[in-house]
Design a protein around this nucleic acid. Structure first.
Lengths: 338, 338
DNA sequence: GCCTGGCACTCTGCGCGTGCGAGTGCCAGC
DNA sequence: GCTGGCACTCGCACGCGCAGAGTGCCAGGC
């Protein structure tokens, strides 16, 4: 195992490198952190750390930079989560409280996260599958065409147009609307299928086809995984990425455009707390030089969706983790209130 | 006025520069376009074009590149809109027809535009102010708390939570819902205020406060300009921008994050056809080295919103204009069907 | 056994001078 | 008014040398 001092050296390297963006040498280290030993000693420690794969040199006789493995150790053992200060917390709360609807909550959260962390922010809309139904509305667009509107407890709204196999009277419509709501209101999405399966039987034979169609559209809407939406922001922060820029930034922007990739990215993190995925730990190739810091958030005790940031592996982990955690907490509160 | 040949020279310069991204010299011009004159003559023409401000040299003794003014002349006089080929049109239609709801239509449109033009695509959601009301729904969340849901003819849904000054009974709620819908359904948003202003008078005294609150929330929702939403995509295309990259791309990304800026950008174009704003013609400073190609689209004959692309001033104007126009047309069709 | 100072070595980055090539402007001639 | 020719101007790529930062290793000291 690594001695205490070597861990300190690693910590110092990570901190300095994150601050300066430049490979850090033994002399600079002893000057900026009082490790109580000479540069030569630090050099020995560095050599050991390099053997173990925690740091690397870009070229011979340059300073060292942390590897993914080095960052991993730093995050797991050497650094805590830096809590937000009281004024910061107030600012977060104030900013989020001004939101008028769910879209606005998500939009504000994205802006906030991007500003706080100076990185790219990703916020998933509250998931359908883990929410409950607040109301189902049915509107007649035409004799044989309905609009189905689904409203969730988190304020999310989904709508679908339903083409009916046969004309559907206003009375039947009102009946279906009432029955549907009495069964599913305030129930979890996952319970809905079993709650409505016998519903067609309550209707006249000629209406059953339509009722079934409506129900299957409803169920589709509930399960449709790829309808998971998300919002991103702060892409301008990518320009602070590094010097060798176009090559690095391109795949990241491309990855960010792929909703699927992002959802998978957020989805991978199963930890109840803040999750950090560093460099090559990310499955997606374009994100191999980035780290993703994410966490679940929710209106109750349970997470209904995730949010996080994407930034260079060389990032301020404690600060970022603190910001992500704090924002998630307040968003949860806001959602619970509305 | 410029002679016919000088216009041809300008056209050739624009085409070559767009293709190669490099300043174009007199010799290369005569080789690639058969202008029927010698390089020396072209040089004279170039000098004249430069005097008039249509082209410029990055440094002495380099080739020429078009100025904003040069592009403007090119777009106005020298180039048409390049129509899409039949297979392209079919592809557009097929791609858009798979959409399940309005969000999906907009999302697909963004992807499509970004792919076709290889630039950044911006699509505005159908505007509220120019749409008509399909349905207004009121839900009781709590005795003195309602949710107002507004559904438009373009399938857009807006919701607001309303805190009532007094508890509001189920009967009153049903009454208000019915009256509201009978008055505003299928009416234009702009007509709504006058249609509902006397509505509180139809209610018992104790309910009037609530009715007024609901109405004012409804009106707010209708006029709220900054609730105009939009979606952008294809930002990865920014990496093809140029060599001097970080400096150029940064302000563009920042501008793209500002919804307000983008909305203004699209809003400025009042022309019924495709509008092109080149370089400094854009009010926003960060977009001084970009051009914006935009057009209105709508479900009927009338435009309900705009869409467009943002790219370097050095872009393929005819092709981009063709793509933008074609996409707008098909989106309009899709919206009219749903 | 571990730390330290010293020393030789190895790179990278930068400033500088040079040569080349592309492109221009101008001029005399057709 | 077009053309060929010519001298001129730059920017850029290349090669060179130097300084500076950082390393690895070794011998000596606590």
């Amino acid at each position: 195992m690594l001695s205490e001092r070597r861990l300190q050296v690693l910590r110092a390297i990570v901190q300095d490198y994150v601050g300066t963006e430049e490979p850090v040498g033994s002399k600079a280290l002893t000057e900026r952190h009082n490790l109580g030993v000479s540069p030569a000693t630090v050099r020995n420690d560095m050599a050991a750390l390099e053997d173990e794969g925690y740091i690397a040199q870009p070229h011979t006789s340059a300073g060292r930079i942390p590897t993914d493995k080095g960052y991993r150790l730093f995050v797991d053992k050497l650094a805590g989560v830096k809590p937000m200060t009281a004024p910061e917390r107030r600012a977060i709360q104030n900013f989020l409280e001004g939101a008028v609807d769910l879209d606005d909550v998500v939009a504000r959260t994205v802006r906030l996260l991007a500003q706080l962390t100076r990185q790219v922010a990703v916020v998933q809309y509250p998931s359908l599958t883990r929410s409950t139904v607040r109301h189902v509305e049915l509107l007649a667009l035409a004799p044989a065409r309905l609009m189905l509107v689904l409203i969730t407890d988190t304020g999310r709204v989904e709508q679908r147009v339903v083409d009916c196999p046969a004309p559907f009277g206003e009375a039947s419509l009102a009946d279906l609307r009432a029955r549907l709501n009495s069964r599913v209101a305030n129930r979890r999405f996952t319970d809905v299928p079993s709650l409505v399966e016998d519903l067609p039987e309550a209707f006249e034979h000629e209406d059953r086809g339509t009722v079934s169609t409506v129900l299957s559209t409803l169920l589709e809407t509930l399960v449709e995984e790829n309808e998971e939406r998300l919002m991103i922001g702060g892409t301008a922060n990518l320009t602070r990425f590094g010097h060798d820029f176009p090559l690095t930034i391109r795949p990241v922007l491309e990855a960010l455009e792929e909703q699927v990739v992002l959802l998978k990215l957020l989805g991978e993190a199963q930890d109840p707390g803040v999750t950090v995925r560093i460099g090559h730990e990310n499955a997606h190739e374009g994100l191999n030089s980035t780290s993703v810091v994410s966490v679940g958030y929710g209106s109750g005790g349970e997470a209904v969706a995730k949010l996080g940031v994407v930034g260079p592996t060389r990032m301020d982990y404690p600060g970022t983790m603190g910001a992500v955690r704090a924002v998630a907490r307040y968003v949860g509160q806001i959602l619970a209130e509305s």
